[in-house]
Nucleic acid binder design. Structure first.
Lengths: 181, 181
DNA sequence: TTAAATTTTCAGAAATTTTTGAAAATTATA
DNA sequence: TATAATTTTCAAAAATTTCTGAAAATTTAA
């Protein structure tokens, strides 16, 4: 299991970026490795390729499974577990979005909703609640957007994208025709 | 500088979430505090309110300034620096998106572009490059999307959102009329 | 100027996260 | 079943990140 120069660089870059993307270095490297290799790999191969301990690989694989980014495969006549990415790059992107929404947005939305039930008792709380309401509405808008985009096919997305700035124009038109909501 | 029960909870939640959002606990708490308070605060007030050292506050404020999320204000007759959030919640959200794109996406896009210039020398590299190309195109699509959305007014966004699933329908219609892209 | 007020820096301490590797648990085969 | 192969767990070590607080630097006012 030797990595080409290029694969090496890709994997290592992913390792560096991974903390910004919500997982730790090893997890990022394992994922990058599986993305870049065409065949599935077992834990020992991963351990060797990345120079990390067997136990660490085991934990990393579990984490990636909890993200639903990789899947286990068995090869007949081989006792080892083999792993590959779960779907195409864009499948994985969708999964990451959904999973990050759950971890990064949902808890905050839920907290905000709770707070918005209370009645503010003074100026200061009035202002606080105002801000929280704004944040709440924004996060909700974003998650709904995300859900819509997630449900669109890659082609539709492309198509919408090509419309580009035209989207705004189209909206104006619609507003003119239908009447500003 | 005493915080209400509610403000306290909000600030503390932000502190917990902040590592998932790309900054450390103190930075998250300082931001939350400034979001929730209606008047600007100086470093000592922040330090007291959050029970963190003066030096830590100084570093946190610098970090938040580098994110362009807060701005400094001077109060006539007072030597201290005072800080408030830079704009509304949605202004800040735009800034965070842009800043995160710079930190989380741009470096990867640039690495991928480099790799895509090379010619693969075997099956394995062929596959690797295929994957990288897919990732590259996806990231580019996403950043373009982000840029568009960022340029739209809050009202336009709302309006587009209200269209909801209708967007796809509209696209189909457009494809029918204009001919598939 | 000078001195007081304020902010910043940064070395070391504390806290947190990641990693290792050996033992325990599980799974597959004979 | 017994045993060999494999995976998982987890305590302790290593690495990294965050935080403190005192000293240095900067800014402001007298």
């Amino acid at each position: 299991m030797k990595l080409s120069q290029k694969a090496e660089a890709f994997v290592s870059h992913f390792g560096e970026m991974s903390s910004r993307w919500g997982f730790n270095r090893t997890v990022g490297q394992i994922l990058a490795l599986l993305v870049v290799r065409s065949s599935s790999l077992n834990a020992d191969e991963i351990s060797q390729a990345l120079h990390i301990s067997r136990g660490n690989v085991s934990m990393g694989l579990k984490e990636l499974q909890s993200w639903r980014l990789i899947r286990l495969e068995r090869i007949p006549g081989d006792r080892k577990d083999y792993f590959t990415t779960a779907g195409s790059i864009s499948d994985m992107a969708r999964t990451v979005f959904e999973e990050r929404r759950k971890r990064e947005i949902d808890p905050t939305l839920s907290l905000l909703r709770d707070h918005l039930l209370d009645t503010p008792v003074n100026e200061e709380e009035e202002h606080a609640q105002q801000q929280m309401a704004e944040l709440h509405d924004l996060l909700e808008l974003l998650t709904q957007w995300g859900a819509h985009l997630n449900n669109m096919s890659a082609e539709q997305l492309q198509s919408l994208m090509k419309l580009g700035a035209g989207v705004s124009k189209m909206l104006e038109l619609k507003d003119k025709v239908v009447g500003k909501n």
